[in-house]
Amino acid sequence: MEETYTRSGPVGPDGLFSVEGMTVVVTGGATGIGRMVAGGFAAGRARVVLVSRRPEAGEEAAAQLRASGCCEVVIGDLSTAEGVDRVVARVLAVAPVVDVLVHNAGATWVGPLEDHPYDAFDAVWAVNVKAVFRMTVGLLPGLRAAVAARPGEPARVITIGSIDGGPVVSPVENYAYGASKAAVHQLTRHLARRLAGERVTVNAVAPGLFATSMTAELLADPAQRERLVAGIPLGRLGRAEDVAGAALFLASRAGAYVTGVVLPIDGGESGCG
């Protein structure tokens, strides 16, 4: 007989989408998309571990999230292999069981084609791609511990890609960034295939245009903002609940049979724009 009961109770709206009691690690969780995702998990009564490069931003975000639930901060820089290893060690010290790992920390670089520096690819790919791979491998003991602790329920890895990683080509000259997000999508599929046998799902969320610090300059000009929003079929920017809801779905019982997927959260821009 198929399993119809989870740790959260019988299959139904409350049980299907519950993340209560899970330990969720969110890199780059102090600002932007990461903060939105972390807020959704905190509101769902998960234990959130924020990874932040900046101590002040991390502590400020954690203080806000503690109003909803449990939140801790790990400070570290994911731009080098040594930095990733230090973050992994610190995360496992406070959270030896990792139910959900959200890779959100990212970097971008914008510049004209002829002036786009070669070093931009090194800087952007170090955080957006290489750190995702190294940190996933480093936190496998925590993910495997979560699988062992909850028989029949997978651990989850969620990468934050972008519609800039395809099929949409950004009007912004962010060559290194767009290429890195395409790599994140393919890395997600590759990890999903490898880890499926260990009951670890790996999926990507690909946001469209959200108002964050990364897009602040792009949206600062009212006329340009209006043009960009006009290109979104649903006619608005993304909101916190849009991306948080996608992450909660993938992390909950409702998304337990989903792996290797790149889920666009873009108001229809990539599908029907």
Score class of each variant (00 low, 15 high):
Val132Asp: 08
Thr80Glu: 08
Glu59Tyr: 09
Gly142Phe: 02
Leu139Phe: 07
Ala145Arg: 13
Tyr175Ser: 01
Ala93Val: 00
Ile163Gly: 03
Thr188His: 00
Val98Met: 07
Gln64Tyr: 08
Arg53His: 09
Leu92Ile: 08
Pro151Trp: 01
Ala131Asn: 01
Arg150Gln: 09
Arg193Ala: 15
Asp85Val: 01
Ala123Arg: 15
Arg90Asp: 15
Arg54Gly: 12
Gly58Glu: 12
Ile75Cys: 15
Ala131Ser: 12
Val157Thr: 04
Glu82His: 09
Glu153Ile: 05
Val94Met: 00
Glu173Gly: 06
Ala146Arg: 01
His190Gly: 12
Val102Ala: 08
Ala149Arg: 13
Gly152Phe: 12
Asn174Glu: 14
Asp77Lys: 03
Ala183Asn: 03
Ala192Cys: 03
Asp122Gln: 14
Gly142Trp: 05
Val124Thr: 05
Arg86Ser: 15
Val102Gln: 01
Ala145Tyr: 02
Gly165Asp: 06
Gly76Gln: 02
Ala126Leu: 02
Tyr175Asn: 01
Asp85Met: 07
Gly152Asn: 11
Ala176Asn: 09
Leu143Ser: 00
Val157Phe: 04
Leu92Gln: 09
Thr80Lys: 07
Glu114Tyr: 11
Ala155Trp: 04
Leu187Cys: 03
Leu92Gly: 03
Ala107Ser: 14
Pro171Phe: 12
Pro112Asp: 06
Ser170Cys: 05
Leu101Gln: 07
Gly69Glu: 13
Thr80Leu: 02
Leu92Arg: 11
Val184Gln: 00
Ser52Leu: 07
Val129Cys: 08
Ala183Tyr: 03
Trp109Glu: 15
Glu56Trp: 03
Ser68Ile: 07
Gly76Arg: 05
Val98Lys: 08
Pro171Lys: 04
Gly142Ile: 06
Pro154Trp: 00
Ala105Lys: 03
Gly165Arg: 11
Asp164Glu: 15
Pro167Ala: 14
Met135Phe: 03
Val98Pro: 00
Asp99Pro: 13
Pro151Val: 01
Val157Pro: 07
Val73Ser: 12
Arg90Lys: 15
Val137Ile: 13
Arg66Trp: 09
Leu113Thr: 11
Ile158Glu: 06
Val132Trp: 06
Pro171Glu: 08
Lys130Gly: 07
Leu143Val: 04
Val157Ala: 01
Ala107Asp: 08
Trp125Val: 08
Ala93Pro: 06
Ala146Phe: 04
Asn104Gln: 11
Pro151Ser: 01
Thr108Phe: 10
Leu195Phe: 02
Arg86Leu: 13
Glu60Lys: 10
Glu173Phe: 12
Thr159Cys: 15
Glu153Met: 07
Arg144Ala: 04
Asn104Trp: 05
Arg144Thr: 06
Val74Cys: 08
Ile163Leu: 11
Asn128Arg: 02
Ala123Leu: 14
Thr108Tyr: 11
Asp99Phe: 10
Cys70Glu: 13
Ser68Ala: 15
Asp115Ala: 14
Ser162Pro: 03
Ser180Thr: 09
Pro141Asp: 11
Val84Asp: 05
Ser52Asp: 15
Leu187Phe: 06
Arg193Asp: 11
Leu78Val: 07
Ile158Ala: 00
Ala67Cys: 13
Arg150Lys: 10
Gln64Thr: 11
Ala145Cys: 05
Thr136Trp: 04
Thr108Glu: 15
Glu56Ala: 10
